[in-house]
């Protein structure tokens, strides 16, 4: 199968597995961010189907702050070899 100099089947499986985990991570991050900011910014009585101005700017800032928390925690974990 791997007669040429390319990666072996085993290495390929590893590569695909890593790519899959990376994508799952991003999807999970996006979903948690979406729910966290919905909880923080959206008025739960649902009087209207539209986002009002306050909600819109809250969402923008919330995404930005969540992103910063992700980076901050990432730096902290990066300094810990056990992660």
């Amino acid at each position: 199968m791997a007669a040429k100099g390319g990666p072996s089947n085993f290495e390929k499986e590893q590569m695909f597995g890593m790519a899959e985990k990376e994508m799952e991570y991003r999807v999970d991050l996006f979903n948690r961010l979406t729910h966290a900011c919905f909880n923080k910014c959206i008025e739960k009585r649902y009087k209207e189907a539209e986002l009002n101005m306050g909600e819109n700017s809250c969402i923008d800032r919330c995404v930005s702050k969540y992103w910063q928390v992700t980076n901050l925690v990432g730096q902290m974990l990066g300094n810990r070899p056990q992660m």
Binding site: D28, C62, Q68, M83
Partner: peptide, 29 residues
């Protein structure tokens, strides 16, 4: 283990964000 570490990272971020960040008058912490 990789999947678990990444999920743990995400859940840690979610928890600390939820517990620590409550005002949205600025876009920086």
């Amino acid at each position: 283990q990789i999947r678990d570490s990444l999920r743990m990272y995400n859940s840690l971020v979610e928890r600390c964000f939820t517990d620590c960040v409550d005002t949205f008058r600025r876009k920086t912490l």
